[in-house]
């Protein structure tokens, strides 16, 4: 198990290198001179040229990339072009805000998604199942920011129940300001979770061991909980993990709509001002977050399914998989 985790952590290195290189390369291709942006409209060409030299922007792309990686390995992610504050400090400053929103959003998704998915599967083709399927299709297809705008119009501007902008400080104001963005983020994820839970449960419902469980004289509730749900859990955990990983990277649209001071907005702002170190830093952070969530999901698998656990402990660095029939 530990070997497996170590192996997965090592595998993150090439992933991170690839992501940084790609972002580095793409940002380099976009028009606009960072030096000109930093110095503003009034800058003289000489000043711009001098700054370019100072920032090392005249060196070849590959050299700049290697320099960035070396700095990164020393824990230095550079400073923002815009305000000179360290990238790491800014990202870490915004991350808790995004994390709070991500957790709230995923909670909304789980609380709605899992029960509705289970009931839908147990009562397949009933009116309830059909309704929830139509609603979840709507939820998946509806753009997040649009839902956010509608919610904000109704509950914040018209009814005044919740604030429409920003993040409240203090427990109750924080909760109040969380409601609308969390629902906005959660509904899309909830729809995915409903569909995944339903289809995964339907697959399990037809298994022979469910007949065995019924033949034991167990109550349908116990069968659903103990025998069906746990076996249906792997695809559900995968879906929830992917959603959560994405949310942790910052929900750009939702954060923008609700002026939530998170990573998503930080990234949008940095992109607009072509603040390359800032963009690189936040993309790198998102990638790390996403990889960690995925690793966590894979570890959770082992606790759900003993077959996967035994596979992990067998798969060391070499592939010595002994399949016992």
């Amino acid at each position: 198990m530990w070997k497996y985790i170590l192996k997965r952590l090592l595998m993150m290195i090439p992933v991170l290198l690839g992501v940084t290189f790609l972002v580095f390369f793409i940002l380099n291709m976009t028009p606009g001179d960072p030096a000109a942006i930093i110095l503003g409209d009034q800058a003289t060409p000489e000043a711009i040229a001098q700054l370019r030299e100072e920032l090392g922007l005249n060196d070849p792309l590959l050299i700049r990339y290697v320099r960035y990686i070396i700095d990164m390995l020393h824990g230095d992610f550079g400073e923002s072009y815009k305000n000179g504050i360290s990238v790491a400090a800014q990202v870490l400053d915004k991350f808790p805000n995004t994390a709070v929103l991500a957790v709230a959003g995923i909670l909304v998704a789980l609380v709605i998604g899992i029960p509705v998915g289970i009931i839908s599967a147990r009562k397949q083709y009933s009116a309830l199942d059909n309704t929830s399927m139509v609603l979840s299709l709507l939820g998946v297809s509806m753009p997040n920011f649009w839902l956010g705008l509608l919610l904000s119009l109704l509950f914040a501007l018209k009814l005044g129940w919740f604030p429409s902008q920003g993040m409240g400080s203090g427990f109750v104001p924080l909760l109040r300001s969380l409601v609308l963005p969390a629902i906005t983020l959660g509904t899309g994820s909830a729809a995915t979770v409903v569909r995944m839970t339903r289809s995964s449960m339907l697959e399990v419902i037809r298994q022979d061991y469910i007949s065995t469980a019924r033949a034991k004289g167990l109550d349908e509730k116990v069968i659903t909980k103990r025998h069906m749900f746990r076996n249906a859990l792997i695809p559900i955990v995968t879906a929830v993990g992917l959603q959560f990983g994405t949310l942790l990277g910052g929900a750009m649209l939702t954060e923008t709509v609700f002026s939530w001071p998170g990573l998503g907005r930080l990234m949008v702002d940095s992109l607009n001002s072509k603040d390359i170190p800032m963009v690189l830093g936040s993309v790198l952070f998102m990638t790390i977050m996403f990889s960690f969530v995925n690793l966590a999901v894979d570890i959770v698998y082992a606790f759900i399914d003993p077959r996967i656990k035994s596979l992990y402990s067998k798969a060391g660095f070499k592939k010595r998989r002994v399949v016992v029939a």
Partner: peptide, 24 residues
């Protein structure tokens, strides 16, 4: 019915490979 199933009448199914819950 639940009192009868598994208690007074029980059943052994055809395929042992799929008749046991894999996660218990």
């Amino acid at each position: 019915l639940h009192q009868v199933r598994g208690n007074a009448i029980s059943m052994v199914f055809q395929d042992p490979m799929t008749s046991l819950n894999p996660v218990m």
